[in-house]
Amino acid sequence: MRAAGKRFAGGRSHGDSRVDQFIEQIITGLSIGSILLLVAMGLSIIYGSMGIINLAHGEFVMLGAYTAWLLQSHFGLGLLASLVPIFIVVAAVGWIIERYVLSLLNNRPLDTILATWGVGIMLQQSVRLMVGSELRYVQMPPSLSDSTDVLGFSVSSYRVFLFFVAIALFAVTWLLMNRTTVGMKLRAIMQDRSVAASFGINAKRVYALTFAYGAGLAGLAGALVSPLKSVSPDMGTGYVVDAFMVVVLGGVQSLAGTVASAFFLGELSGAIAFLQNDTVAKAIVLLAIVVLIRFRPEGLFATRVRT
């Protein structure tokens, strides 16, 4: 395989080039999927467990990227060292928003759509007013800025790193939801809030923590993708669309569904972009989601989860 890769990097022979391309494209799809998963996970938690359609999700992603930039340019902190502070900062913002905006609306879905949209616009404009609207630069960790061999193909080390971080964050989130008391309480509230409350569960506190955790994840996603992409006040708009596609396709209350749909969309858009181009890929992916939702309105995985 290694030899095949070497040949691939050079002039390439004809024999197994199709297989090579296929495998390379699978790896690419996994990479695109892992970025989608990173971005969608925070939304999936908030939407799935609280029923809040968080339109400020993109702005949490943006805040994470800006925190990374701030820590780097003003405090000289590298990206990897700033991940924990970034999570805390954005989670704190999320907590404040849940505590002082959403919980006052009793987390009613329609009211919170409008409220989170407004909060998103305010966050975006305040960043623009405070640090300006130029594109900002977040440095890639130097240790990850070269490329590595994966099955003989040269792949960006940073993309490999992102893949593992996405998987790790998913594992942590799954454990939090299914193996901790907070997670158990949250699942109890999801089943029936009033019954859970009558058993002495403080629903307000659990909701605030959940929202903060989701926001923190979004912030991490923003910080992690910023070395591959760009940082600007309105960068969140694109991500929120991607994240919604992933969550809706995966099934609203299913973490596993989010993972499956992120990688499915990653592979699909990567493959179409390779065979056709990215413009066509975007259109076909949206069309595919519409068709799938038409026949499975609950998303791919909805039935498997609620046990």
Partner: peptide, 22 residues
């Protein structure tokens, strides 16, 4: 000759194509 949507930020497939067309 290829065009990506405005604001596009995922270029891995494009880079694969660049690799294969050299």
């Amino acid at each position: 000759e290829e065009y990506v949507p405005l604001g596009h930020s995922e270029f891995s497939s494009v880079i694969n194509k660049i690799r294969s067309t050299q």
